[in-house]
Nucleic acid binder design. Structure first.
Lengths: 213, 213
DNA sequence: ATGGCAGCAATTGTTCAACAATAATAGTCC
DNA sequence: GGACTATTATTGTTGAACAATTGCTGCCAT
């Protein structure tokens, strides 16, 4: 968790992730600075950080807009996930503190599923995968995943069928956790590989349907 | 290659990587802005970008200083490298354009080795690994590696024995390339894993010697 | 109509000067 | 010597101004 103190950047980050500004929305320096009650210069500093994190896109002399992941972006995000997540799970110890976070994420997603609160289901799902990456004990890999997950969230925002997107993976999370605890990391890693392929296909399917419709 | 146009940030980045400012050096906004001929505000924007890339460290109200990787950082960097590089090599195709870059990097490192130009040897070595990552065709993984490689360079800067650091790996690069072309990706990946372990031990050894001395 | 072309408006890029907020330092008193 | 206070230097932030660039609008000629 880098820089919780960094109020402006984090506030903006949260608002973007929460969908307050739709992907592709242009962010005007003047109006947004006024809206947030900060100066243009301060806002621009926050812009540079968020651009580096991939959350907004900055085109010189044309301003910044909320990132709007393309199909190529989604493909690349899942490619990176397949490089990191299964390996982290394969080498992870069942005694690692992150396992507790995995448990909690699974339980959270299950209760949210019953409540049909798809938004929270999605958040819990991502927390589950975040915990998997945390098994690797690598700040740099965690940072990569944090940025990637945020981008993926933007992609989800453009798809208006959150149930199909998140619901099927709750039981898979539960199953994956059990496999990890009962059969060990390598077996779970294998299961996760299939999981990620299916998840990618689900997102890409919804995506292409969206672009056609 | 993100934003070659971005002159100020890239200029500063290059100067830091080239060792113009030693790791740990404090970068004063006022004096550096004057030195670079830009305003404080513009410089601060560049600072935010470089901080996000891990090249400089920003402590609120205390300014920024050139990153000075610790032992923990080096360990984490190699951990991340082991997650990405062998897998990229294992899945890489011999017909991939990046293979040509691997060849060129090996040849460059060999000629620089004869000239005993250790600095260039180090650059060529990193170019070799950059090409390996490029086999994965993933912009996000390439970006991760780019940042990691820059940090590692800062660690190298603090070690004043570049020959021991870079020379031994020239023949290993050549061997790794041949294994990849003749025996395929998985065999090369296995070799790379050992390579990275040795490389990490070399760096860590020099590092602890340094901190003691 | 259509395809350029000049000028205009809006936005970003950058600078400067000022002040507020914080951290480091020096000095003082006990 | 140690704790407290005042000073100083640096960063954080602002507002206004202007330069540089983009995109648009309306005009003209074909």
């Amino acid at each position: 968790m880098p820089d919780v103190e960094d109020t402006l950047t984090n506030a903006l980050r949260r608002r973007i992730i929460d969908g307050e500004f739709a992907p592709g929305t242009r962010l005007s320096e003047i109006s947004l600075a006024e809206k947030l009650g900060v100066s243009r210069n301060t806002l621009r500093e926050a812009f540079r950080v968020l651009a580096e994190q991939g959350l907004i896109e900055h085109v010189p002399h044309r301003g910044v807009s909320v990132a709007s992941p393309t199909v190529a972006d989604v493909v690349d995000i899942y490619r990176a996930r397949r490089y990191v997540e299964p390996a982290a799970l394969a080498a992870g110890s069942p005694l690692h503190p992150a396992v507790m976070a995995m448990r909690e994420a699974v339980e959270q997603s299950e209760t949210s599923l019953e409540a049909r609160d798809w938004r929270t289901v999605g958040t819990a799902n991502m927390a589950f995968h975040d915990a998997i990456v945390a098994l690797a004990d690598s700040p740099r890999l965690e940072r990569l995943f944090r940025d990637i997950a945020a981008e993926l969230r933007l992609a989800f925002l453009e798809i208006d069928n959150p149930e199909a997107l998140h619901a099927p993976f709750v039981t898979r999370n539960r199953s994956l956790l059990e496999t990890f605890l009962e059969q060990g990391g390598p077996a779970a890693a294998e299961e996760l590989r299939d999981y990620l392929i299916l998840s990618e296909q689900t997102v890409l399917g919804a995506f292409t349907r969206l672009r056609r419709g």
